[in-house]
Every structure is written in C-alpha cells, then in structure tokens.
Amino acid sequence: MQMAMGKEKRQRAIKKNLVAWCFLLPFLYFFVNFLLYPILKGIHLSLYDSTLGGSQSFARLSNYIAMFQDKNFWNSMFNTLFFVVISTPTIVLVGFIFAMFINSKLKGTIFIRACLFSPYVLSMSVVTGLWIFIFQPYTGLVTQMTAKLGVGEMYWLNTKWLVWLAILITTVWWTVGFNMVLFLAGLQDIPDEIYEAARIDGANSRQILFRITIPMLKDTITLVILLQTIASFKLFGQTYLMAGGGPGTHTKTIVHYIYETGFTNRKMGYAAALSFAFFVVVFLVTLLQNKLLGSKEE
C-alpha cells in the first residue's frame, strides 16, 4: 500500500517536472546557444593569440599577463568605475524622487509620467544626437544660454570632468524613466492601510518616508540598484558618440576598449581576456552589493 503510494507520488512528480521542462526548453535552447556557449567560447578564446579573420595559436595565460601590465586596461577600467560611482546613486535617487512625485496623485501626473518615461524608448543614437546638439560649442543651446549670462565658451564635450557631467545628464535623462516605473510599481504595492494607520498614530511625512515607504520598497531598491549598476558598467554609446572616448582617453570605457581591441585592431583573444576580466569585476561588484543590501533584511 505504502509502496504504491510512493510510486504514484513519484510519477506525479515526474509529470510535474516534465511540464516544467517543456516550458523551460525554448528558453534554455536560446540561453545555451546564444548566451552560455558564446561565454564559454569567449573564455576559451581568451587563452589564444587570435586575430579576427587571421591566425590563431594557443597562448596560455599571456593575454591575462599582458592585461595586467596594460595601462589602457586600467585606465578604461577606472573610467568605467568612475561612471558607475557617479551615475548609479544619481539615477536611482532621481528615479525615486520622480516616482514619489508621480505617486502623489496630483493633477497631471499621467502626462508628466509619460514625459519622463518617453526618452527611454528612444535609441542611443537619437538621444546622443540630441544632446550633442544641446552641448556642442558655437551653436549649441547651452552655449547660447551661457553666452547670454556672460559666461564664455565652455566646450562641454571637450573638457576633462565637464564631459562626464554632460554624459551623466544625458544618461539620467535617457534612462531615469525606467527606474521610475520600477519604483512606481513598488510604491503602488504598498497597501494604503499602512499609511492610514501610521497617520492615525500621528506619524509625520518624514517618518512615513523613512519608516514605511523605504523599508517596504527594500526589494525594489535592491533590484533597481543592481540593474542600474550593471547598466552603468556597460557604458559605451554615450561616451563613444558624444566624446569619442576623449579628450584623449578620458572617457574611454572598458567596453569601448574591448570593442576597439577586438574589432579595430582585430585582437580577438586579447579582447576576450578583457571581456572575461570585466565579467569578473561586474560579478564581484554585484555579489558584494547583494550581500550588503541583502544582509540588512535579516
């Protein structure tokens, strides 16, 4: 009797698993073929001295050794980390403030929400094209405004550090809408009763924000920070199109350097090694972040 029951249970479990696998398979097929395989292939390639369209020979770890001595690698890694540090808090904070504003249910917020989100649907080249138009010297909008104030030409896109500000503004404008929507979804999940109870208990709006809203948004905040960090690490288009990685190599990011190494100079093996190193850095940073943000939960 007991054995028969056990068998039935197992059969049911297999059937359940089978259904799950059927749903998983289409995704797994693409995941394995177009993500997992290329990644493994990339790691494999990083051990070779390989030219795109040319010769290939096993090189052991020489790509990695060269990488640690490569000034350009460290420079572009620094630039990337710099952007992560300045952009992640800014975009998360601005996204949160926008979401709070829209969630306040004032008149006209639907229109404002659409305005704030719409840049996100534009493509990279349109966004950068627009902001180049705004920041460019001689004829740009910013120049014409500062000229009226008596400030001379500032060359936003050609001056060290100022160029980062221009890129940060562009990136915030472009991507903040996405974070805003995530925060908004999180805010709307917080039941009104909690706010009501808090107000009855005499909590002021500051207390409500720090004791209710932010703790209840914990998971959303963790997610947004994680996604934003990864997005910031991948910075390429804005710096490449708006400043060409310049002045000099001041805004050359690691993805830019990988692209240049692999596709301009055709050193695929070295580019693969750089990519893997980049992967490790992002992985470690996300792990660390998850640990820091996750531990407060308990």
Partner: peptide, 17 residues
C-alpha cells in the same frame, strides 16, 4: 550569475553616429 553574464553577451552594442 545570469544577470552578470548578460554583461558579456551584450557588451559591444553601441551605434556610432
């Protein structure tokens, strides 16, 4: 791991004007 692996897969996807 999945999230971070996307970084590798979607690395160079910028467009040059």
């Amino acid at each position: 791991g999945l999230a971070a692996s996307m970084v590798l897969a979607m690395g160079a996807c910028g467009k040059k004007e």
